[in-house]
Simulated scan of single mutants.
Amino acid sequence: MRGTLVHSYLFLRRAIGVIGLLLPVVLIVGGLLADGGLAGSISGYYHGSLRDVFVGAMCAVGVFLISYRGYDRVDEVVGNVAAVAAIGVALFPTAPADADGTERVFGVLHLVFAGVFFLALAFFCLVLFRRSDDTAPTPRKRARNGVYLACGLVIVASLVLIALCALLGLAEALRPALWLETAAILAFGLAWLTKGEAVLADLEG
Rank of each mutant, 00 (worst) to 15 (best):
L186C: 12
A177Q: 15
G37P: 02
G169L: 09
S132C: 01
L5N: 06
G146S: 10
V53T: 12
L10P: 04
L161N: 11
I185N: 08
L178Q: 14
T194G: 02
V112M: 06
A95H: 01
V6Y: 10
L153M: 13
D133E: 11
L159K: 08
G36I: 01
V6I: 10
A39K: 07
E181S: 01
R73Q: 12
G196P: 04
P137Y: 00
G20Q: 06
L33V: 10
V77T: 09
A201T: 12
L186F: 15
F64E: 00
R144D: 07
F92D: 03
C151E: 14
L167M: 13
A57V: 08
M1W: 03
R131M: 08
A187C: 12
T4C: 05
E204N: 13
K195Y: 04
A136L: 11
P96G: 10
C59A: 08
V116I: 07
V84G: 10
L200A: 05
L27I: 05
I155G: 01
V89Q: 02
A60K: 02
E181G: 01
A187K: 05
L190S: 05
L149M: 11
I28M: 13
L111S: 12
A150F: 11
V156K: 05
R14Y: 04
F54W: 11
A90N: 11
L203I: 07
A143G: 04
I87R: 09
L27E: 04
L22W: 01
L193A: 15
L22K: 07
L153E: 12
V160S: 08
V127H: 12
I155S: 00
R13Q: 05
R131T: 05
I42V: 11
W192R: 15
T102A: 13
E197M: 10
G70T: 00
M58S: 05
A191R: 03
L164C: 13
A86Y: 00
L161R: 09
D35W: 01
F188T: 15
D133K: 12
C165R: 10
R140E: 10
F188V: 08
W192G: 12
R140S: 14
A173L: 10
L91E: 03
L12E: 09
V108Y: 09
G40K: 12
V127E: 04
